[in-house]
């Protein structure tokens, strides 16, 4: 009898603490996951001068990070935007594209603010061999154009 009352008291005391702890951990993970960002990265395999692109991207206050790659006659840029600039994603893409085209008139410029493209570009830059890079860039470009 005594044991039962003891256990009851323990249950009342511990009620909800586990789930509270668990929810606290989940909450912390979600909050802290916002702290990642890799800044501005440029990968240059061609003979082009990357300074102009760097200038255009770093001077734009709306960007939080940008990943750029020069490959043969392609210039591919993936950017992430500040939260409220995300509403003007298409417009910012267009503006950046125009600016980059002014800097590199002979290159085929593609700009995307899509996080999928950003993810893939980071993977692409970390790649060791340049063999399939052209193919992968073409694939990304077709992915950007896809509508459905």
């Amino acid at each position: 009898m005594n044991k039962v009352t003891y256990e009851k008291a323990y249950c009342i005391k511990m009620e909800g603490t586990h789930i509270r702890k668990l929810s606290l951990v989940i909450f912390a993970v979600i909050i802290l996951s916002g702290c990642s960002g890799s800044g501005f990265r440029i990968d240059n395999n061609s003979s082009e001068n990357q300074a102009k692109a760097e200038e255009v991207l770093k001077n734009d206050k709306r960007l939080t990070s940008a990943v750029t790659t020069f490959h043969e006659n392609n210039l591919l840029t993936a950017v992430t935007l500040k939260t409220f600039s995300r509403f003007k994603k298409v417009k910012i893409e267009k503006e950046l594209k125009e600016k980059l085209e002014n800097g590199y008139p002979e290159l085929d410029v593609t700009v995307s603010a899509d996080s999928k493209i950003w993810m893939e570009m980071n993977k692409l830059i970390d790649l060791k061999d340049n063999k399939d890079k052209g193919k992968k860039i073409e694939k990304l470009k077709s992915l950007i154009k896809e509508e459905t």
């Binding site: 979600i30 899509d114 999928k116 493209i117 993810m119 992915l143 896809e146 509508e147 459905t148």
Partner: peptide, 24 residues
């Protein structure tokens, strides 16, 4: 919506969906 965001992220990470096409 948080669950939906994770599902969307799952489709973007493991399949060839972009942010726009992952919505469907």
């Amino acid at each position: 919506c948080l669950v939906g965001q994770f599902v969307s992220l799952f489709y973007m990470t493991y399949f060839d969906f972009t942010e726009r096409t992952a919505s469907n």
